[in-house]
Amino acid sequence: ATVHVKGVTYHFDNPEQAEKFAKRMAKELNGEVHVDGNTWHVD
């Protein structure tokens, strides 16, 4: 799974980790999470 945060890409072997990371980053950055298959975007 892949997480894109403000133009930076993070790779996770575990999709659950990717989801938790994306949601945590969105919270910290006051952003929104969008999911597209195995790819998470934090804007």
Rank of each mutant, 00 (worst) to 15 (best):
E28F: 09
E16G: 08
M25V: 09
Q17N: 10
D36P: 01
H4R: 13
H34M: 07
V8A: 08
H4W: 14
G7M: 04
N30D: 08
A26Q: 04
D13N: 10
D36L: 12
D43A: 13
G7L: 04
F12G: 00
V33W: 13
W40M: 05
R24H: 12
H41E: 06
E19N: 05
H41W: 15
D43V: 15
A1H: 13
M25L: 09
F12L: 02
V5S: 03
E28N: 06
P15C: 10
P15A: 14
K27W: 12
G7C: 08
H11I: 09
A26G: 06
G31D: 03
N30S: 08
V35K: 15
T39F: 07
N14G: 07
A26I: 03
R24D: 11
D13V: 09
P15K: 11
K6Q: 13
Q17E: 15
V42R: 01
R24E: 12
L29Y: 06
M25N: 03
N30I: 04
N14V: 07
Q17L: 12
N38C: 07
V3D: 00
D43L: 15
T9V: 15
F21N: 01
T39Q: 14
R24Y: 14
A22S: 03
V8M: 12
Y10T: 03
K23R: 13
V3T: 02
D43N: 13
K27C: 09
M25W: 08
L29V: 06
G31N: 03
N14D: 14
A22Y: 01
F21Y: 06
G31Q: 06
V5L: 08
D36V: 14
G37F: 04
V8I: 13
M25A: 06
K6N: 15
D13I: 09
E19Y: 07
K23Y: 14
E19P: 01
R24A: 13
N38D: 07
R24Q: 14
A26L: 03
T2E: 08
N38A: 06
Y10A: 01
R24S: 09
V33C: 08
D13K: 10
A1Y: 15
E32V: 15
L29G: 04
A18V: 00
F21T: 02
Q17A: 14
E16P: 04
Y10C: 04
M25S: 04
K6A: 13
D13F: 07
W40T: 02
A18K: 00
T39Y: 07
N30H: 10
A1F: 15
K6H: 12
A22G: 02
H41M: 10
W40R: 02
V42T: 02
W40S: 02
Y10R: 03
E16T: 10
G31F: 09
N14P: 01
T9D: 06
T9H: 06
V33M: 08
G7K: 04
K20T: 11
H34K: 10
D13S: 12
H34R: 15
N30K: 10
G7T: 04
V3P: 00
V35R: 15
K6T: 06
K23P: 00
T39V: 15
N30R: 09
F12H: 01
D43K: 14
G37Y: 03
E28L: 12
Y10Q: 01
L29N: 04
H41G: 03
A26M: 04
E16K: 10
D36H: 14
K20R: 13
V35M: 11
Q17R: 07
V42N: 02
G31R: 05
V42A: 02
K20A: 15
K20W: 10
V8D: 06
V3E: 00
V35P: 04
A22W: 02
K6E: 08
Y10I: 05
N14M: 07
P15D: 09
T39H: 15
Q17W: 06
H4Y: 14
N38Q: 07
L29M: 09
K23L: 14
E32K: 14
P15F: 11
K23N: 11
K23G: 05
V5Q: 01
F21K: 00
A22N: 00
F12A: 00
V5N: 02
E28T: 07
H4G: 03
E16A: 12
T2V: 12
N30P: 05
M25R: 05
V3I: 02
G31T: 07
E28R: 11
L29P: 01
K6S: 13
D43T: 15
Q17D: 15
H41S: 08
V5C: 08
E19W: 07
K27I: 12
R24L: 13
H34F: 12
E19V: 05
K23T: 09
M25F: 04
F12N: 00
A1G: 10
D43E: 14
K20M: 13
T39A: 14
K20G: 07
F12D: 00
W40Y: 13
K6D: 14
H11M: 08
T39W: 05
A18E: 00
V8S: 07
V35E: 05
P15I: 12
V3R: 00
A18Q: 00
D36S: 13
V35S: 10
T9K: 09
N14H: 10
R24K: 13
H11D: 05
H41N: 06
D36Q: 12
V35L: 11
E28W: 10
K27N: 08
T39P: 02
G7P: 03
N38P: 05
R24T: 09
K20D: 12
E19M: 08
H11F: 14
H41R: 13
F12C: 05
H4C: 08
P15W: 11
T9L: 11
G7D: 06
V33G: 02
K23W: 13
A1E: 04
E16H: 09
H41D: 04
T2D: 06
W40P: 02
V33H: 04
H11C: 11
Y10H: 05
H34W: 15
V5P: 00
K6G: 14
T9Q: 08
H11T: 09
H34V: 08
M25E: 03
V5I: 11
K23A: 09
H41P: 01
F21P: 00
Q17T: 11
K23F: 13
V3W: 01
H11Y: 15
M25Y: 04
V3Y: 01
N30G: 14
A26E: 03
V5K: 01
G7Y: 04
L29Q: 04
V5R: 02
V8R: 13
D36R: 11
V33L: 12
Y10P: 00
G31I: 05
T39D: 10
K27H: 11
H4A: 06
Q17G: 06
V5W: 05
V42L: 04
G31S: 08
D13P: 11
H4D: 05
T9F: 09
P15S: 11
D13A: 12
G37P: 02
L29H: 05
E32S: 15
M25C: 08
D13L: 09
A18F: 01
H11P: 04
E19F: 06
V3S: 01
T39S: 14
T2W: 14
G7Q: 05
G37V: 03
D13H: 08
N38K: 06
P15R: 12
M25I: 10
H41Q: 06
T2C: 14
A26D: 01
Q17C: 14
T39I: 13
Y10S: 02
N14C: 08
G37T: 03
F21I: 02
H41K: 08
E32W: 15
E32N: 12
D13M: 09
T9I: 15
L29C: 08
N38I: 06
E16R: 10
A26F: 02
H11W: 14
G31C: 14
A22T: 02
E32P: 04
V33T: 06
W40A: 02
E32M: 14
D36N: 12
Y10N: 01
T2N: 07
D36T: 12
E28P: 02
A1V: 11
H11L: 09
G37L: 04
W40F: 13
L29I: 10
T39G: 10
P15G: 08
N30W: 05
N14L: 09
H11V: 09
D43I: 15
G7R: 04
V8F: 11
D43Y: 15
T2H: 09
E32R: 14
K27G: 06
A1K: 04
V35G: 09
N14E: 09
G37I: 03
G31L: 15
K27A: 13
A1M: 07
V3G: 00
E28C: 13
Q17H: 10
V8K: 13
A22I: 02
K27M: 13
E19I: 05
T2Q: 10
G7F: 05
E19H: 05
N30A: 07
K6W: 11
H34A: 06
E19L: 06
H41I: 15
H4S: 09
N30Y: 06
N30C: 12
V8W: 09
V3A: 03
A18I: 00
V8H: 10
F21L: 02
V8C: 14
K20N: 11
H41A: 05
D36A: 10
A18R: 01
A26Y: 02
V42S: 02
D43W: 15
T2P: 01
D36G: 04
L29R: 03
V42F: 03
P15M: 15
K6V: 06
V35D: 03
G7A: 04
T39N: 14
K27P: 01
M25P: 00
D43H: 15
